[in-house]
Design a protein around this nucleic acid. Structure first.
Length: 418
RNA sequence: CGGGGCGUAGCGCAGCCUGGUAGCGCAUCUGGUUUGGGACCAGAGGGUCGCAAGUUCGAAUCUUGCCGCCCCGACCA
């Protein structure tokens, strides 16, 4: 799936790359649904831009600084607030063009003191970052809520139960911020929350993002939830009954900020307000660690034998195991099934190596595709094949004849966006 | 950056203390026997022992310097 090429730097091998693309696509679809517009900014930025915001000196050693052949100072972007602000001010002059919600999915580099946990904390990582521009705080809050809801949906589609937690705004600054945390034993930080939060229903596919989303926000922030650094044990114990208290470990998979005019003022991103006066725009930024999500999903879905991918992000939906490759009937049956499944839009990984059965099963379990189809000469005599579900381990006999439609239906049901 | 450790075949490791020219398991390749849930036998290929300098008749092994990587801590999508 991946291969380490340096501290915190990974090559994405074919299988891992497929998963990354699927995660990316879900993130993209939910951004689009929420009304954000995709674009693409470069990885390399000019130091000059960062001097305007004052962050060139403030950012410290985490920023990878580069010089070009003319000794111009450049940097590999750790984030894009400055650049998007520059793009905004160059093109937007009037309140009538607001709000704006722009995002891109691009590689970032942060020269972490200590990269670890593989792709969970790489130095180079793929991030979706959205930036909002609004005329005032009230409007900015609506943008914030859109991303808040979009994130709940995004993570749910990957099978992750995310919990928004009030967060410290950190070096990016501002006063309204939430981290989206997924609970996992191997999580990096301790988290504390109210159990009732975990069972809340995620907003549906047909959510109207132009409507008032404040009730959703209120619902998901009504109960206690805090990461280690924001945790206050007295409040926790006062607000949450003992049976509802959850103390666990969590992985941060998303982080949203409202930071007002922090960048628009120094960088002069002003728009004309209705009364004709120039006012600084109110901004927010919203990040999802796309490459990190791959690690988070594995943490959430695996067993001793390997991965157990949710259908929505699995590198393939179905693995076809030919128990006796070289046998004419087996080969024909496998190839027919493969073709029929592809016809149905099901993604298939076909193992026709001549390894022993046990090795093939083990390998397929490790890869962790949602469904495995086993075809061998013995079952084939009666037109039977085996369908195994990786997540439950459940195996069922099925007729070869109806298998493509049957599997396609199961895959499509699992993929149905709610 | 502070503390600890590692670098020897694609992967995982032994050998280093006590210098004598490199080995094991897995993987790969060939042949055979097997074959329905991690087979067996026989054989083969694959290594500038992280890099450089030094000590020595001789360095994977000792010394020094450098590079890379991992783990613990402060920081982070």
């Amino acid at each position: 799936m991946i291969r380490q090429e340096g501290a915190g730097i990974y090559a994405w091998l074919p299988l891992g790359f497929r998963v990354l693309k699927k995660i990316e696509q879900i993130v993209r679809e939910e951004q689009d649904r929420a009304g954000a517009v995709e674009m693409l900014m470069p990885t390399i930025q000019q130091a000059e831009l960062w001097r305007e915001s004052g962050r060139y000196d403030a950012y410290g050693k985490e920023m990878l600084r580069i010089t070009d052949r003319s000794d111009r100072e450049m940097l590999f972007g750790p984030t894009n607030e400055e650049m998007i602000t520059e793009i905004f001010r160059a093109g937007i002059r009037s309140y009538k063009s607001l709000p704006q919600l722009l995002y891109h999915i691009q590689w970032k580099f942060r020269d972490e003191i200590r990269p670890r946990f593989g792709v969970m904390r790489g130095r180079e990582f793929l991030m979706k970052d959205t930036y909002s521009f609004d005329i005032d705080e009230e409007s900015a809050r609506r943008s914030y809520n859109k991303m808040f809801v979009a994130y709940l949906r995004t993570f749910a589609r990957m099978g992750l139960k995310s919990i928004p937690m009030r967060a410290d705004t950190g070096p990016i600054g501002g006063d309204l911020s939430h981290e989206f945390i997924v609970l996992a034993d191997t999580g990096e930080s301790a988290v504390f929350c109210d159990k009732r939060l975990i069972d809340l229903e995620v907003p549906a596919k047909d959510t109207d993002f132009d409507a008032d989303l404040q009730p959703v926000f209120d619902q998901f922030t009504a109960h206690y939830a805090a990461t280690d650094e924001m945790h206050d044990i007295e409040t926790f114990e006062a607000k949450v009954s003992e049976s509802d208290r959850v103390s666990a470990r969590g992985i941060e998979i998303g982080h949203i900020f409202y930071f007002g005019t922090k960048y628009s003022v120094p960088m002069k991103a002003f728009v004309a307000s209705p009364d004709g006066k120039d006012v600084p725009v109110h901004m927010g930024s919203y990040g999802v660690g796309v490459s990190r999500l791959l690690g988070a999903i594995i943490e959430a879905y695996h067993d001793d034998d390997g991965c157990k991918w949710p259908v929505s992000v699995a590198p393939y939906h179905v693995g076809v195991i030919n128990l006796k490759s070289g046998d004419a009937a087996c080969d024909a049956a496998c190839e027919a099934l493969y073709a029929a499944l592809e016809q149905e839009g099901v993604e298939v990984l076909y193992d026709d190596t001549d390894a022993r059965a046990g090795e093939k099963f083990a390998r397929m379990d490790l890869i962790g595709l949602p469904y495995q189809v086993v075809i061998g000469p013995r079952g084939l005599k009666d037109g039977k094949i085996e369908i195994k579900q990786r997540s439950s381990g459940e195996r069922e006999e099925h007729s070869l004849e109806g298998a493509p439609a049957h599997l396609a239906k199961r895959v499509k049901d699992a993929l149905r966006v709610t």
